[in-house]
Amino acid sequence: MVEAPHTVKSYEEELKNLNSNIIKMGGFCEESLGKAIQAITTRNSDNAEAVIKDDEKIDKFETLIEQQVVNLIALRQPMAIDLRETVTALKISSDLERIGDLAKNISKRTLLLNENLPKNLTEALVRVSSNVQKQLKSILDAYLDRSSAMAINVWEGDEQIDDLTNLCMQEVIKYLKENEKNLDDGTHLLFVTKNIERIGDHTTNVAEQVYYLVTGEYLEGDRPKGTEPIVTGEK
């Protein structure tokens, strides 16, 4: 839906600004997640440190967006689509901030990990994380395009992530069982896996927000299990 511009130009500007801040913030999160995953799979500590450093930037974005939202509500009293845009911006930004935190946590643990990890484990990790990465990218695109269909896709894709996470967990547990020395690394890897799954959850949250933003309705019911989408009345 392409909206006509507001009569009050500065209001229009503020909303556009908010929108672009979300997109920028999403971009940073995407970058951080990518780097964090690269760091863990390629054992690159430079990337890991960069992620830890970039989290500060993401946190600042959250604060900035929160202020903008409060200002908009206080001064412009947004209605209908503008109201939804403002409110979802607040929620999306907090999800994104959590994603940033989780990426940071992954990186911190990466720095503590042993050099050599079994190939199976790395592969499982790559499968789940690249899936999450893809989800994040497509939900940010969905936000940019105001596409409810893409949002539903992302929302439905969460199930696959859960499955992949379980597989990955099994690999980690196998790794833990192999050797008592693996206890340290294994624990870290458990958390990393859990973090990646949490990132997937936050992405799904964002998908719900995008759906609400576009349609004004809530994605109802449990998150999908299996192939049949529960959601109807797509707009």
Partner: peptide, 10 residues
Amino acid sequence: TQDYITGRFG
């Protein structure tokens, strides 16, 4: 309606 209540009336 949306245009009116969001202040987008041209």
